[in-house]
């Protein structure tokens, strides 16, 4: 091979490697930047955050992944993201609509409600908007006894761990996201906690191994921002 040919081959090889690097950087960094942060503002020292978790999502790339959605407080539209921000040092009133079916926890310890005000969560079941029973305050939703937990909402560094009940599986689950109360059975959960007294970013996650098709169910949506894990930004 001539010197010219070798130089050309080397140049092509370098360009290919650099191109792959740029592609990966743009692909991953670019995909991250597409996530929207939903900003909540406080009123009278309180902020109301509304989430829902669905059996699927409305993305084009991974429509079969389970996913959280965040409700925009201004438009009340559901945003496919897991990033939201709240003010510091306020009472956070969380509302979570659980549309997804159950999955047993790997550690049933997470069946216990921890870190909420009162150590409980208010739970009520619905089917297409019709209540299936009264709302109840519970401190444990035993994931193993009835397979009654769909997902969890946890901010480990705040000591907040909340199992989210799954709806009655005898009814057909919502099949189009974002789900609405009329689209299927769901569990409505409400609980409160105080936001940190300083600004920063807190990660939150689900402890149910809900990444179907992945090893231990702990990959895929479990390790992807915008699906079953996210970040809560605390702002001044």
């Amino acid at each position: 091979m001539s010197v010219l040919a070798r130089a050309a081959a080397l140049t092509v090889a370098v360009l290919v490697v650099v191109g792959i690097g740029i592609f990966l950087a743009v692909y991953y960094l670019g995909s991250k930047s597409q996530l929207t942060n939903v900003a909540y503002t406080a009123s009278n020292g309180q902020v109301n955050v509304v989430l829902q978790e669905d059996p699927q999502n409305n993305s084009s790339s991974r429509p079969d992944w389970v996913s959280y959605f965040v409700q925009d407080p201004n438009t009340h539209k559901w945003v496919h993201t897991t990033l939201f921000s709240i003010p510091e040092h306020v009472k956070v009133n969380m509302t979570i609509y659980g549309y997804d079916g159950c999955t047993p926890l790997r550690n049933n310890f997470w069946s216990r409600v921890q870190g909420t005000l009162g150590g409980t969560v208010n739970v009520q079941q619905f089917n297409k908007g019709r209540p299936l029973g009264p709302a109840r305050n519970v401190s444990v939703i035993n994931s193993w006894a009835h397979c009654s937990v769909g997902h969890t909402f946890a901010i480990p560094s705040l000591g907040l761990f909340v199992p989210v009940g799954s709806p009655n599986a005898s009814a057909s689950l919502c099949s189009s996201s974002p789900c609405t109360p009329s689209s299927g059975p769901y569990t409505l959960q409400k609980f409160s906690f105080y936001s940190p007294t300083h600004t920063g970013t807190w990660r939150w996650q689900c402890f149910v191994p809900c990444g179907g098709g992945f090893i231990d169910g702990n990959s895929g949506p479990m390790q992807s921002l915008g699906y079953m894990m996210g970040q809560m930004q605390v702002v001044a």
Partner: peptide, 20 residues
């Protein structure tokens, strides 16, 4: 388990299947 801990009305499972 030998007994139930909390029975929340209507909350029953799908026989314990990992979704999906």
């Amino acid at each position: 388990l030998g007994r139930d801990i909390v029975k929340v009305a209507g909350i029953t499972g799908a026989n314990g299947y990992y979704y999906p």
